[in-house]
Design a protein around this nucleic acid. Structure first.
Lengths: 201, 201
DNA sequence: CGGTAAATGTTGTCATGGGCTACAAAGTAG
DNA sequence: CTACTTTGTAGCCCATGACAACATTTACCG
């Protein structure tokens, strides 16, 4: 058996991942304002300056969290789409529900993801956001192919759809709308999309 | 003539307003993260602990800014509505344009307004938000009265509309969409509302 | 008026945290 | 085995938020 007093090695091994893990937990439990690099270092059991090797400053950590958030969101959306029928209305509704679920269950994370002031050269975030954005475009394209939606730039329609979802989540996360209304609002949004963007008779 | 060396009186007179003013400027120029009570105190010319009398802690200041933001937003929307025709489509479009304009020109402020973690008992913000929210509901009601929109809970439709606008602004403020696309996106959103929520033939 | 309580500002202090530099240990390649 | 690089440590400075004790105005009330 190894020593009971678990000597920590000088090198952590995968400090970056451990920090992100801890950060995600703190973010969820106490919000972005409470995120302190020193605190994370303590939790992970390294010196207060160790995180610096992986995140030059606090904002770099926040950006990394945001980037990871888009990846998680993309995974959530694709997972939701995997379990649903082929027809367009079902797929739209499943996607919208999955988005708002994710967004309301990860309120602080979403706030980071859409924060206006990422560091100038944070290309990683934009890149990571392309995955879910693209998914939305594909979905719209599918709807157009099926004849459920009128022609038009799928990206533009997708962005508006995305925006509506994000906005609904904001309303709930900001406590302006009771969470119980979430489903009804999503339902309304789905109906309006299907009716508002369908082909002219 | 009074003394040239402008002796500052012990009592500022309207410190609270002065602080909010300075805070709004800093918020616009450098973002919420850069807002420091001590810095504001310096700018206004009072001691570092003076703001405490008016804002018990930093969050209280942020909440006050958010509250003021909703009042300004409400004023902007009503002002836009005052200069436009009576017909529903014009009014909707004017309102939506005014909202997204305000939201993109005051990105950091909007972020504060919809931040998920206001202090528990910040009833002031919710109260202030009721004004613009109500405006949106009234607008929907008008549309229904004119027969441009189908029946339905005006508040629910209004919230979805509001959410869409806020979402579009988020996309632009978060740098996921080029600002030049703003008008086109609003246009799309307007059309979808008018088509998606109009009465069945 | 005049005196007292409440508001409002000031000074001084502490703990926390970000960011920096110099140094140490562990891995890696020649 | 010896350099070189990566990763973590120790210690410092400084800004800030929060707090307490004290000072000055202002407001109110007899």
């Amino acid at each position: 058996m190894s020593d009971v007093t678990e000597e920590r090695p000088y090198h952590h091994g995968n400090l970056r991942a451990a920090l992100l893990d801890a950060a995600e937990r703190v973010l969820r439990e106490r919000g972005a304002d409470e995120l302190s690099l020193r605190d994370l270092a303590r939790e992970v059991g390294v010196s207060h300056a160790a995180p610096r090797r992986h995140f030059p400053d606090r904002q770099a950590l926040l950006d990394a969290l945001a980037e990871s958030g888009f990846a998680q969101l993309d995974a959530a959306l694709r997972s939701a789409l995997a379990d649903v029928d082929e027809d367009f209305p079902s797929r739209v509704k499943a996607t919208m529900t999955a988005y708002t679920r994710f967004a309301t269950e990860n309120a602080a994370l979403l706030e980071l993801m859409y924060a206006s002031k990422h560091r100038p050269g944070a290309t990683g975030i934009a890149k990571a956001a392309e995955a879910p954005f693209g998914l939305m475009s594909e979905l719209i394209t599918q709807g157009q192919d099926e004849g459920a939606l009128q022609a038009g730039d799928p990206e533009r329609i997708g962005i508006v759809l995305f925006a509506t979802l994000q906005g609904i989540a904001s309303m709930i996360n900001g406590n302006f709308v009771r969470p119980e209304l979430l489903d009804a609002l999503v339902e309304t949004a789905v109906e309006q999309l299907l009716r508002g963007a369908r082909p002219l008779p």
